Simulated assay, not measured.
Amino acid sequence: MFESIGWSEILVLVVAGLFILGPERLPSAAAWLGRNVRKVREYATGAREQLRNEMGDDFDELRKPLQDLQQLRNFDPRRAVTRHLFDDIDVAEPKPNGHTPPPAAPPVPAPEEPKPTATGDAKFDPDAT
Rank of each mutant, 00 (worst) to 15 (best):
R73A: 07
V40N: 07
E3Q: 05
A29N: 03
P126N: 04
R52P: 00
F124D: 09
D76G: 03
P111L: 13
R52E: 06
A30T: 05
V14F: 15
G22M: 00
H99C: 15
K39F: 09
T129A: 14
D87P: 07
N74H: 14
G46H: 03
P114T: 02
I10W: 04
T45Q: 14
A92N: 09
P94W: 04
A128C: 03
A30H: 00
Y43C: 12
V14A: 13
P103M: 10
A92P: 01
P111R: 10
N74K: 13
N74W: 12
R48H: 05
V12C: 06
L13M: 08
T82G: 11
P107M: 02
D57S: 15
P111K: 08
P103F: 06
G56E: 01
E9I: 12
V14L: 15
P94D: 05
L21V: 01
P109E: 03
I10V: 14
P114I: 02
P65M: 01
Q70I: 04
R79K: 12
V91H: 00
F59H: 09
F86R: 08
L66T: 03
T119A: 15
V81E: 02
P23C: 10
G56T: 00
T119Q: 15
P102G: 03
T119R: 15
Q67F: 15
A122T: 02
F19H: 05
A104Y: 08
P65D: 02
V15T: 10
D58P: 00
R52W: 00
L69C: 08
E42P: 01
P103E: 06
L11T: 10
R52D: 03
L85M: 11
T119C: 12
D58F: 14
M55D: 06
A128I: 04
K95Y: 11
L69M: 11
R83P: 00
N36P: 03
P109M: 02
P96M: 02
R25V: 10
G34E: 11
V91R: 02
V108T: 11
E49W: 14
R48C: 09
Q71E: 12
L85S: 02
L85W: 12
A80Y: 13
P77K: 01
D90G: 12
A105Q: 12
W32L: 15
R38M: 12
E3T: 09
L11R: 11
G46M: 01
E42N: 10
A80G: 01
D127A: 13
P106M: 13
E49H: 12
S8A: 10
I89T: 06
D68P: 00
L33M: 13
T129K: 15
V12G: 05
T100N: 04
P102T: 01
V14T: 11
G46E: 05
T82F: 11
I89Y: 07
D121P: 04
D60G: 10
Q71V: 11
Q71W: 09
L51A: 10
P111F: 10
P101E: 02
L51M: 08
P116T: 01
Y43T: 13
L33G: 00
R73Q: 09
L33C: 08
V15W: 06
I5R: 01
E93I: 08
G56W: 04
R73N: 07
K115A: 13
T129C: 14
P106V: 11
E9V: 06
F86D: 07
F59P: 00
G120D: 08
F59R: 03
M55G: 00
S8L: 14
A128W: 08
P96W: 06
